[in-house]
Nucleic acid binder design. Structure first.
Length: 815
RNA sequence: GCCGAAGUGGCGGAAUGGUAGACGCGGCAGUCUCAAAAACUGUUGGGAGGCAACUCUCGUGUCGGUUCGACUCCGACCUUCGGCACCA
């Protein structure tokens, strides 16, 4: 009999041994196939909570499973260390962000080590250290030189709480800041952008990716590709410079239905086009629009507003004079900032027309409806063209092309594609980030820092109060420099990079973390990339996961890598809730894993997290459920530790025993492959329960028993690595279980000899019979009809059919 | 409003066209104990009948449909969660 299961002791012992023996270190010179399993790196907030474990434990289990299956596995870990919380903590508590961050990392690394994962700590990577951000800056320069980074003035998102600009992707629904939740406002500022739009079409290609449909849909919606036409409407007044204004429309086939013309209130031509007598009213309206938040302006269901400018455009297709209005439902940032109003066939235009009594003209009728009468409701589908001059009678799909052809031949417009996605704003007015390696010279203008001058170190002595301006601006020793081109006095860029730039390429760095002359060693990168399995939360769908795809496509375009997608397979785990709610500091229901690890062990925490439900759906933390898992590990401990005494061996029992053993190997293997961790554990528990019964009866040989125990431990090893290793040693095996191959099942032994045949009458269960697998259809039917319980239910009825499903069911249909 | 996921015992969940509720928690009963806890064993969806082995019946958000047979497929709806949202 063994001593009691003492997880604290054995977990400490084996973690030390694995580290000392470097058994989880990954090398490139292996003849095994490579497998790169990656979990999204944690932000250095200070404490790992059970949500982090929920992301990390199952992915480690899968990585361990792949490792035992014979793959050369890379499963690294690091820290996303730049970002606002560090700076905010610094402001609040007077600790330097660097000190705060590094202290948190120390603590989190200790917590992470207690998980018992196969992380190769030699490859640890911290994004806020100069040896890392040097290369983040290097990439910025590469983007600049490739024409993919540019500086421009634009209306940008401004978070008044964080005192910095944000990318569009970082403004969540209802116009809230992704970090702090405050209402974001708009500011006109000159900022750095990355040309993600250039890759919009490539980013829509998911054909080689095994990603959840949900994320692909979110990215597709975010990119928002629309095909249509750009059409120029002629200005009636001829004293104005451009002679026409362009609109974007997805329905050029409705162009004969235009009855008004709309501009965004901020459209640059508004001030020229407004008639003198309407100027006051227009200016008042524009000012009113500007006062509204972005969210208020774009809210659906809002009553339409607008003002007539007092001037007109000409619809070149029919020569009609169309009044120009401005309205807040047209935004300058999409399409051309101008819209042709077709009230009969667009919901919004219809509302606008109703509100301001503008004419509604039907130009498309539903197929089969010949009436040319104005319709009561908006019809936004395709149909037959009417009131459209020479195009009358054409189906609108053909009319679309015919009108485009006409526009193109006359030079009035052309087919085009518009995207919803905007270029990625990457500069931030904050201190704790990688400085943007650019210099402003009065003579030479914007000059990039030379590659050999990297890293541009973040000064440690900057004042970082949130003033709305970059803290680095006031750090003279940082700002003042010389121009790399003319050597005259110059100023450094004082903005830092969005932290999503750091997480764009960290998975490349893991392949050669000590690389000194380049961000990565190409040979090692070629060996490991792309990531075979990437796991993490779905909240990064249109931020990190989109940016990283763009980043890889961009550096492939530059010739730096030869693959064009970073993550071949993506999996999003669900959320762990506690006391019926999502865990959060404000709700005060955060579960800290440390206490549970100390009490019942990391193996139990790992196993419990995988047992609470399907990984992709999340689950609820429950203290009593957790105790249940620990009880099971205890049962395993006792089962394996107790001497097995063979009593009378029975051939039938031994057969069944082998069958159960191999069925379990199969089930566990298949469930692991599909991330069905909860049912994998259930089958391991069933196996344990079964073994307990056999242990009591002693009906199988010692040899079979020992074999089964060996399998049990191997199957348990990825989930509960410490207890498996301990019991492996205690049962006389050689170290280490984690270097053993994954067991294979024998299909011959999985096959059952007897099956339970279900007998139904009119689809209702009436009897169950244990029959040989080989039973014929005729035998099965006869057997079923002969059963007493069946007879009682078919008495006096006429049997119309008997359905037989081999190995499953006989259903007697009787009336 | 649109898109996606989900809805099953007291609870977490299992079963993806063929035995609904695997496995675990909780409950109940028992063993051990002076007693309790722990551990172990048995039992546990609701209702009705039976001394009993057992039998019948209802039951997977709601309503309909397809099928010999539906938690599973189809249609409509309700609820919860996530995402998007005047995108021309």
């Amino acid at each position: 009999m063994l001593l009691n299961y003492n997880p604290q002791e054995i977990e400490k012992k084996w973690q030390a041994r694995w580290a000392a023996d470097h058994i989880y270190e990954a090398t490139e010179n292996s003849n095994r196939p490579k497998f790169y399993a990656l979990t999204m790196l944690p932000y250095t907030s200070g404490d790992l909570h059970i949500g982090h474990w929920y992301a990390m434990a199952p992915s480690d289990v899968y990585a361990r499973f792949k490792r035992m299956q014979g793959y050369n596995v890379l499963h690294p870990m690091g820290f996303d260390a730049f970002g606002l919380p560090a700076e905010n903590a610094a402001i609040k508590h007077g600790i330097h962000p660097h000190v705060w961050t590094m202290r948190n990392i120390e603590h989190m690394r200790d917590q992470l080590k207690r998980i018992g994962a196969i992380y190769d700590w030699n490859r640890e990577m911290i994004t806020c250290l100069p040896e890392y951000y040097r290369w983040t800056q290097w990439f910025f320069l590469k983007f600049y030189h490739a024409g993919l980074a540019y500086r421009a003035k634009a209306p940008v998102n401004w978070c008044p709480e964080c005192q910095t600009v944000l990318a569009n992707e970082q403004v969540l629904g209802e116009g809230c800041c992704e970090r702090c939740g405050s209402q974001v406002t708009k500011k006109d500022l000159e900022q750095w952008f990355f040309r993600i739009t250039r890759f919009a079409d490539e980013l829509l290609d998911f054909s080689h990716l095994d990603w959840p449909e949900r994320i692909k849909t979110m990215q597709r919606n975010w990119i928002g590709r629309s095909e249509g036409a750009e059409v120029s409407f002629k200005l009636e007044r001829e004293d104005i410079k451009p002679e026409g204004i362009k609109v974007f429309t997805t329905r050029p086939d409705t162009i004969f239905g235009v009855s008004f013309f709309l501009l965004a209130p901020e459209h640059p031509l508004v001030s020229q086009l407004v008639a003198p007598e309407r100027r006051d009213e227009v200016e008042r309206y524009v000012a009113w629009c500007r006062r509204q938040s972005e969210y208020e302006r774009t809210a659906v269901g809002k009553e339409k507003t607008g003002v007539f400018l007092g001037s007109y455009v000409i619809n070149r297709l029919n020569g009609e004079k169309i009044p120009i209005w401005i309205t807040d439902y047209v935004s300058l940032s999409y399409g051309t900032g101008a819209v042709m109003g077709v009230p009969a066939h667009d919901e919004r235009d219809f509302e606008f027309a109703k509100k301001f009594n503008l004419p509604v003209r039907t130009v498309i009728t539903p197929p089969g409806c010949s009436s040319k009468k104005p319709m009561e409701e908006v019809y936004s589908e395709t149909g037959i063209m009417v009131n459209s001059g020479e195009f009358d009678g054409l189906p609108s799909e053909q009319g679309y092309n015919a009108i485009c052809d006409l526009l193109e031949s006359r030079g009035w417009g052309k087919r085009t594609v518009t995207y919803r996605i905007r270029d990625w704003l990457v500069s931030r007015q904050r201190y704790w980030g990688a400085p943007i390696p650019m210099i402003y010279c009065n003579k030479c203008g914007i000059v990039p820092v030379a590659e050999e001058d990297l890293p541009i170190l973040l000064p440690s002595d900057a004042e970082f109060k949130p003033t709305g301006e970059s803290p680095l601006k006031y750090c003279q020793s940082f700002v003042n420099t010389t121009c790399p081109r003319c050597s005259g006095p110059a100023r450094r860029e004082v903005d830092t990079m969005d932290t999503f730039m750091c997480s764009n390429w960290y998975f490349l760095r893991y392949t050669s973390p000590k690389s000194d002359g380049a961000p990565f060693e190409t040979e090692k990168l070629k060996y490991w990339m792309p990531v075979d399995l990437y796991t993490g939360g779905a909240e990064h769908a249109v931020m990190h996961l989109l940016y990283s795809r763009f980043f890889i496509k961009a550096i492939k375009y530059m010739g730096l890598v030869d693959f064009d997608e970073p993550f071949t397979r993506l999996f999003n785990q669900g959320t762990i809730i506690y006391l019926g709610d999502k865990m959060s500091k404000s709700r005060g229901n955060v579960v800290a894993p440390d206490k549970y690890v100390s009490e019942l062990g990391a193996d139990a925490v790992r196993a419990y997290l995988m047992f609470v439900g399907p990984w992709e759906l999340g689950g609820e933390w429950s203290d009593s459920g957790f105790v249940g898992i620990s009880r099971w590990l205890n049962r395993v401990w006792n089962l394996v530790g107790m001497d097995y005494v063979s009593q009378v061996t029975e051939l039938a029992v031994e057969k069944e025993f082998l069958n159960v053993t191999h069925r379990t190997i199969k089930k566990v293997s298949e469930d692991l492959e599909r991330f069905h961790f909860n049912t994998m554990l259930a089958s391991l528990m069933e196996f344990t329960n079964y073994l307990s019964k056999i242990q009591e009866s002693g009906n199988v040989s010692v040899l079979l028993w020992q074999q089964a125990i060996t399998y049990l431990l191997l199957l348990l090893a990825p989930t509960a690595p410490h207890i498996a290793e301990e019991l492996w040693a205690k049962t006389g095996h050689t170290y280490s279980i984690h270097n053993r191959p994954w067991p294979e099942w024998d299909e011959e032994l999985v096959r059952e000899e007897k099956i339970t045949l279900v007998i139904e009458v009119n689809g209702k269960l009436r009897d169950k019979l244990l029959v040989p697998v080989s039973i014929s259809e005729i035998e099965a039917k006869e057997l079923a009809l002969g059963q007493e319980k069946v007879k009682a239910h078919i008495e006096g009825k006429k049997i119309s059919r008997v359905i037989y499903v081999p190995g499953r069911v006989v259903n007697i249909v009787a009336k």
